[in-house]
């Protein structure tokens, strides 16, 4: 189990050069697609989503291990974001059921999924631009009395709680090096800072499972390092992390477990080093990049562009 690994992790924010401590022994039996986990926090069964004729997601069975960092990888259009949307209640599947912490989530609306402690971030950051950074953070807090319309009119009911939340937010902002920006509009932050803000905001509610959709995309290398540290930190605080990432170096660096998707299916699972050697994974990426370094890619966009060109050119 992962317990000893978690307690062994340092409690202070790690220095960028810190070597992550990997959690091992997460699965039962062979490391194959859909394999069982020792202590799963999220279990999905037969989840399928189609858009017209396209099957975006078709996952027979997948389990996410508790207290570990799991990476979800796959080529563009593999269905990773769609799976995220389904698991968090932002989209409805055609079929399937899934449970979080033993509770069924099928048909549960997104806001209630979030309240259960399964918090997500978005591939395209959603900073609330015309709210201050502090207000963004405060919005993340759970169970606020003043968010009820009638109690909102009686400040004495919520003032104390508001102060506590503010202190907590300031603490998180300091850790994410955003404390100097707390009174600025979120719209004034840089792209990378917005990613940080979105992550910090998600942590305001003390989630059990954090789902990050490409937290590192578009973030400069210096910031990437500190983001990685933050993710490692989440694990050391006992949270479970599921994240989507295209940069294989990052995945290998911090992930304890890797799930590979292609064309909507889970095609491979395993330890980050082993999984790269899996022929199914190489197959999945084949034709785009045959090496392990998949890095950034604009291939989908480029592909669509050429498709439109073809459409127009078939006239001539």
């Amino acid at each position: 189990m992962s317990d000893n690994a978690v307690s062994a992790a340092p409690l202070e924010p790690p220095v960028p050069t810190q070597k992550p401590i990997k959690t091992t022994g997460l699965h039962i039996g062979e490391a194959e697609p859909g394999c069982r986990k020792v202590d799963p926090i999220l279990i999905a069964d037969g989840v399928r989503r189609t858009f017209g004729g396209l099957t975006a997601v078709d996952v027979d069975h997948v389990e996410v291990p508790r207290g570990a960092i799991t990476a979800l990888i796959g080529p563009n259009g593999a269905g990773k974001t769609t799976l995220f949307n389904l698991l968090t209640g932002f989209d409805k599947p055609d079929a399937g059921k899934w449970t979080f912490d033993g509770r069924s989530l099928a048909g549960v609306p997104a806001y209630r999924v979030a309240r259960m402690g399964q918090i997500r971030t978005f591939q395209l950051t959603k900073a609330l631009g015309l709210l201050t950074v502090m207000d963004n953070m405060l919005l993340g807090a759970k169970g606020q009395t003043g968010e009820n319309m009638f109690r909102a009119l009686m400040p004495f009911l919520w003032r104390n709680q508001e102060e506590e939340n503010r202190a907590k937010a300031l603490d998180l902002l300091t850790r994410f090096k955003l404390d100097t920006k707390k009174d600025d509009y979120a719209a004034s932050l840089s792209g990378g800072q917005r990613k940080l803000l979105e992550m910090a905001r998600a942590l305001m509610s003390d989630p059990t499972l954090v789902m990050l959709d490409e937290p590192m995309a578009g973030v400069n290398p210096a910031l990437t390092q500190s983001l990685l540290d933050h993710i490692l930190n989440l694990k050391s605080e006992g949270m479970t992390v599921l994240f989507v990432e295209h940069d294989m170096h990052m995945v290998r660096h911090i992930a304890d477990w890797v799930i590979v998707m292609a064309e909507g299916h889970v095609v491979a699972e395993g330890d980050p080093h082993e999984v790269m050697r899996n022929p199914a994974v190489i197959d999945a990426y084949l034709g785009q990049h045959h090496d392990e370094d998949l890095g950034e890619d604009q291939s989908a966009e480029a592909e669509n562009v050429s498709a439109i060109k073809e459409l127009l050119d078939d006239e001539r």
Partner: peptide
């Protein structure tokens, strides 16, 4: 009030606010 904060958040991006459990 915090209610107004949620309301303004919805104006900015309702999916983000939903993802925060509102």
């Amino acid at each position: 009030s915090p209610w107004g904060r949620v309301i303004k958040g919805i104006r900015e991006d309702e999916d983000a606010v939903r993802a925060l459990g509102k």
